[in-house]
Design a binder for these strands. Structure first.
Length: 575
DNA sequence: GCCGTTTTCGGCCCGACTGTTTTCAGTCG
């Protein structure tokens, strides 16, 4: 079983935590964290890169030493240095650092003074009142640690973007009523449209700095459960939903610089600030400074301008090559929702959807689409009301009839055809021939070994009536891991065969991932952004798909459902 | 441990808030 990038990154992160607790050189610690970030976010697996004979030191923040360590982990699964460090410093200490308010220094103090090694040790010490006796800890610290250790449940789950929107919307409306407020924007990963967000970063500008009344208004919000910190320019709270919200208030003149700063990503910001340093500037949330002189910061564009770059869209700000592309004038012109001309994956009552053909058609037409494909499940997927041959042909007749009555939109005859365990398709060719095109997907046997799963999909693509591979990883965010599959191989073969890959826009799927999109684009495989709608309301999830596509650098030309219908039909004819 | 238009050593992004402090360390983002 090949070692995943995430496993390598986790090991580096754990090593960084433990070294930090040991009071190692902070820059060395940071080097491991940077490497973890690079590896975790890299679109191809380290194992594949090494197979191809790639030089890992060409990756950002990976030097000779870390390249060797990565190679060792790929080959043996082990990181000997981590094991060595774990011999002398209890591994569970890195868990304790996840508790709010406990960093390396305090975890170290707790360990050295009270021999606290685990969460249980910590709870016990807090209960018995031993903690406040340590130098640097007082009654308040002890009480906070006691409370937080008690309800600590480990890794905090990130929230789906669509759920974050539901939390943010009423909060935003409430905050807008604050006195003295000029502008308000949600920054952070929410603005970068990441598929999940860890917290909400809200930025407000006010006529004057240090507007205490705005902070009071914020912490008075009736969903606030706990105020973690509260200052003049920055406050943090937890809402009842569990969502952490950070609010920052800056003067209006700093809006652009602050927006840039709080939108991140961290890696992108650090890289931009480094570029500023080279030019003799200091960049922070208040602006761009040359010495004491403030030379930019009113708009984000002015910040980029000072480091010699064009404006970079928030979705690209991950330090995944956007700065280099910007320098070269090669930034993509990102796709927008308006570029979408149709939707190639939708269900009706005939299988497991909630609306009729006509209702779906009308809803799609009202979104301005030229076409909507009806893609009921195929016969093997009985749990989802899969259609047999007769039922499918009956539905096609209905579609033909409805198409005669519809104006401005065309329903396409399709099906979400199951890819069976052996790689064959769930309908015979003579039936598949009747489809305008097919959307093919895996719905069972998720746990095949990677090689078999990949072969299964390749075998399916051999069928000349295979057009689009739906939700290619099968993952459900926070619920189900992706199945083992060699995406690069699949994309390579899809390109050869004239097949396409879906970016499923369901907020829980968003499958392809952003990194998958980057890879598909690089390999020249066309993408269908499709909602997999099971109701008329689901059709509007298209915007999440477009968000993800933008994070994946996709342009209008990379997305097949930006084409008019006549051109799209030609794409589906395989020879 | 990484990195280099200040290039193989000597730097490494930057500011706010809290608590325990008498001027700052630790933590966080």
């Amino acid at each position: 079983m090949p070692v995943h990038n995430s496993e390598i990154a986790d090991k580096f992160d754990r090593l960084a935590d433990l070294l930090e607790i040991e009071d190692a050189n902070p820059f060395r610690v940071r080097a491991y964290r940077n490497a973890a970030r690079t590896v975790r976010g890299y679109p191809r697996s380290m194992s594949d890169l090494l197979d191809d004979g790639a030089d890992l030191t060409e990756l950002p923040d990976i030097g000779d030493d870390l390249a060797k360590k990565i190679q060792a982990m790929v080959e043996t699964g082990n990181l000997p240095l981590l094991e060595e460090v774990e011999e002398r410093t209890p591994p569970a200490l890195s868990e304790l650092m996840k508790i709010e308010g406990l960093g390396p220094k305090r975890v170290r103090a707790l360990y050295l003074e009270l021999n606290i090694k685990t969460l249980d040790d910590l709870k016990e010490a807090a209960e018995s009142g031993k903690i406040h006796e340590i130098a640097g800890f007082g009654d308040k610290s002890e009480e906070k640690i006691r409370k937080r250790a008690e309800k600590f449940i480990g890794e905090k789950k990130r929230t789906l973007l669509i759920e974050a929107e539901d939390i943010a919307r009423p909060l935003l409306e409430y905050l807008k009523k604050a006195e003295g407020l000029k502008e308000i924007v949600i920054a952070g990963s929410y603005r970068r449209r990441k598929e999940t967000v860890g917290d909400l970063d809200i930025l407000i500008t006010a006529a004057k700095a240090g507007t205490a009344s705005i902070m009071d208004h914020f912490t008075d919000y009736d969903e606030v459960e706990e105020v973690v910190s509260k200052g003049k320019t920055r406050s943090t709270v937890y809402l009842r939903s569990g969502m952490q919200v950070d609010l920052r208030v800056v003067p209006q003149i700093c809006f652009g610089a602050a927006q840039h700063y709080f939108t991140g990503s961290r890696a992108h910001n650090i890289a931009v600030r480094k570029m500023g340093v080279k030019k003799g500037y200091k960049i922070n949330e208040y602006g761009v400074f040359r010495g004491d002189e403030r030379i930019a910061g009113k708009t984000e564009k002015s910040v980029y301008d000072k480091v010699g770059l064009p404006y970079i869209e928030p979705e690209l700000r991950e330090n995944r090559g956007e700065l280099e592309a910007a320098k070269e004038g090669e930034l993509p012109k990102l796709i927008t929702l308006d570029d979408i001309r149709g939707n190639l994956h939708a269900h009706t009552k005939a299988s497991d959807g909630h609306n009729s053909l006509r209702e779906m058609a009308k809803a799609a037409a009202s979104l301005g689409y030229e076409y909507l494909a009806i893609t009921e499940h195929s016969k093997s997927l009985a749990v989802a009301g899969g259609l047999d041959k007769k039922q499918l042909q009956a539905q096609f007749k209905k579609i033909d009839k409805l198409n005669e009555q519809l104006d401005g939109i065309v329903l396409l005859k399709s099906s979400e055809v199951d890819i069976l365990a052996d790689g064959s398709l769930d309908y015979p060719d003579d039936l598949l021939k009747e489809l305008d095109f097919s959307v093919c997907a895996i719905h069972q046997k998720f746990d095949l070994p990677g090689k078999k799963q990949t072969e299964r999909i390749l075998r399916a693509m051999d069928n000349p009536y295979f057009n689009i591979l739906a939700h290619p990883s099968g993952r459900l965010i926070n619920e189900r891991d992706p199945y083992e599959v060699d995406l690069e191989k699949i994309l390579e073969e899809a390109k050869k065969r004239g097949c396409f890959v879906e970016l499923n826009a369901q907020p829980k799927r968003l499958d392809l991932t952003d990194e998958g999109c980057i890879l598909a684009k690089k390999m020249g495989v066309g993408i269908s952004i499709a909602t997999d709608a099971h109701s008329t309301a689901d059709l509007e999830h298209m915007r999440f798909g477009v968000d993800q596509a933008r994070r994946g650098w996709l342009e209008k030309k990379d997305v097949i459902n930006c084409l008019p219908l006549n051109k799209l039909r030609k794409l589906f004819k395989r020879n």
